[in-house]
């Protein structure tokens, strides 16, 4: 289960960031997740409940998210397009020489501390 690994990573990172900033309790963690990472946020949110319950720092905290749209750049014609709509092939010139420029991110955007 992919989401489980991500949730553990997030919890570990948040613990580190909290220690650096002298925070003893977290209210919420906001993630930015790319559109083509394939993760199902509802699963992450359920797992967060389970993982956060075991930590005094995270107990009762909420996991929130924002989606980063996937964008592909065509190296042949230089135009950008929506990866989800058109896939690997450029809809402008038909080239396959394309590269994903954004949409595969897992980012901890911000942490809200309530103490």
């Amino acid at each position: 289960m992919h989401e489980m690994g991500i949730v553990y990573h997030v919890a570990d990172e948040v613990e580190k960031i909290a220690a650096q900033n002298d925070i003893c309790h977290i209210g919420s963690v906001t993630l930015q997740i790319g559109e083509v990472t394939g993760v199902i946020f509802d699963y992450m949110s359920d797992l967060w409940g389970w993982v956060s319950d075991k930590s005094s720092l995270l107990k009762g905290s909420r996991l929130l998210y924002e989606q980063i749209p996937a964008v592909t750049l065509c190296k042949s014609c230089g135009q950008r397009y929506s990866t989800v709509q058109s896939g690997r092939q450029c809809p402008h010139c038909g080239s396959w020489d394309t590269v994903l420029v954004q949409g595969n991110e897992y980012i901890i955007k911000q942490i809200e501390a309530d103490s």
């Binding site: 900033n21 595969n104 897992y106 809200e112 103490s115």
Partner: peptide, 12 residues
């Protein structure tokens, strides 16, 4: 006393 930390930490 809410404090917001802009983490911008990329897991990958």
């Amino acid at each position: 006393k809410v404090k917001i930390i802009e983490a911008k930490e990329s897991l990958l």
